[in-house]
Design a protein around this nucleic acid. Structure first.
Length: 387
DNA sequence: TATTAGTCAATAAG
DNA sequence: CTTATTGACTAATA
């Protein structure tokens, strides 16, 4: 119906030879496993099938996409989903072709468009297309109903009928229904055992990161043995930590949207289905709100090294001993102050936390919350309370 | 080969 | 049940 922004660039994208057009459903299978095939909802599904009759393959659509504001986009998506009691799993699997966890992450911390690769943009383009679909909600609700139906059916048959209902899956069906009812997929295959690092281990790693974000193999080995972790775990931890820290920076980078506006304007309701589109706004620094963040320990560390002793009593943990972490839940604003401390160079050479500067705020989340509260409060329209 | 970007999938939290 | 977190893995890059 309407194209947001003009997109007159990108004429020749030297590449885009593109792989096969079916990304999600082509999971690389592992040697032994084989889908758990939880019995239902096949993860690697039949593809979302996005575009209606648009002759464009999503890949093309993405390549031509105009520069979406991922923040605004995700905000709207979250709004639509919550307002209609639609879950991330359903949305992710049927619209984006991603799992629930990925959707959660994406919606909570979208990276700015310009930092995304072609592939990384895909989910956002799909979100946009979805938002444009007039029947998006009905369609998802239908799917939800279908799933529930299937679920009920399955449950019914397994209770009344003492027998399998499996649609004969590839999985080896050994002993089934041995004693108590159902055991769908006798996952005799080990689950996977997730490694869970203890708080003290994490702290040690963070401390190490602080000193050297890119530890040498030697250091890694050292850490691994000291903490009693596999080398690969330590390596992975650094990879993930760097990646996630970087992402935090992104969000606080471009999203200073301190949009003041909103405030007053007593009458204007603000919650109705669609919301203003707020295309690109010229981010002029409003004012930094002071929201604190969940933990944000990333920056927290900044202090520990040098710094004056005075300011090291900030919240989170005493830097010392492993177990000492004071469990000060939240510390309110003060925490932020600690961070801003100059504490210039640390003992290590090379690049040191230049990150200085302001602690960010995400007043946006508050807006979101407020919106939902208002919504819930004035809900006279009991259009199905979920369930 | 070393890193990054993007996800998955287990499981913690709500 | 739903959402959030996070170690591990894969493909893409430097």
């Amino acid at each position: 119906p309407e194209s947001p922004l003009s997109s007159a660039e990108e004429s020749l994208n030297g590449l885009v030879g593109d792989r096969d057009p079916l990304p999600p459903p082509a999971p690389s299978l592992e040697p032994p496993s084989g889908e758990p095939s939880g019995g239902e909802s096949q993860p690697g599904t039949p593809l979302p099938l996005p575009g209606p009759i648009t002759g464009l393959s999503i890949q093309e659509t993405i390549a031509m996409s105009p520069e979406l504001d991922t923040y605004v986009l995700t905000k709207k998506v979250k709004e639509v989903l919550t307002d209609n009691n639609l879950g991330q799993r359903l949305f992710g699997e049927s619209i984006l072709g991603l799992t629930q966890g990925s959707v959660s992450d994406l919606l909570a911390r979208p990276k700015p468009w310009h930092k995304l690769s072609l592939k990384g943009r895909e989910p956002f383009v799909r979100m946009q297309l979805w938002l444009q679909d007039p029947h998006k909600v009905e369609k998802l609700m239908d799917m939800k109903r279908l799933e529930k139906k299937a679920y009920l059916k399955r449950r019914h048959s397994s209770l009344s009928d003492g027998h399998s209902v499996d649609g004969g899956l590839a999985g080896p069906d050994f002993l089934q229904s041995s004693s108590p009812q159902h055991q769908r997929p006798p996952q005799l295959y080990q689950k996977k055992v997730r490694v869970v690092l203890g708080p003290e281990e994490k702290e040690a790693l963070k401390r190490a990161y602080q000193e050297k974000p890119y530890p040498s193999p030697k250091t890694i080995e050292e850490l691994a043995s000291q903490l009693n972790l596999k080398t690969s775990t330590v390596i992975n931890w650094f990879h993930n930590y760097r990646s996630r820290i970087r992402r935090e920076l992104f969000i606080e980078e471009i999203q200073a949207a301190g949009s003041a506006a909103a405030a007053k304007a007593g009458e204007g309701d603000s919650c109705d289905g669609t919301e203003s589109d707020g295309t690109v706004e010229g981010r002029h620094g409003g004012h930094r709100g002071a929201s604190e963040d969940r933990d944000m320990e990333a920056g927290v560390e900044a202090r520990l090294s040098g710094g004056s002793p005075a300011q090291r009593n900030c919240t989170t943990s005493g830097s010392a001993g492993p177990g000492s972490s004071s469990s000060s839940l939240f510390s309110l604003p003060e925490a932020c102050l600690c961070l801003s401390a100059p504490s210039s160079h640390t003992s290590t050479p090379a690049k040191n936390p230049r990150d200085n500067t302001l602690r960010k705020k995400k007043a946006a989340n508050l807006n979101n919350i407020i919106h939902r509260l208002e919504k819930a409060a004035g809900k006279e329209d009991p259009s199905e309370w979920e369930f």
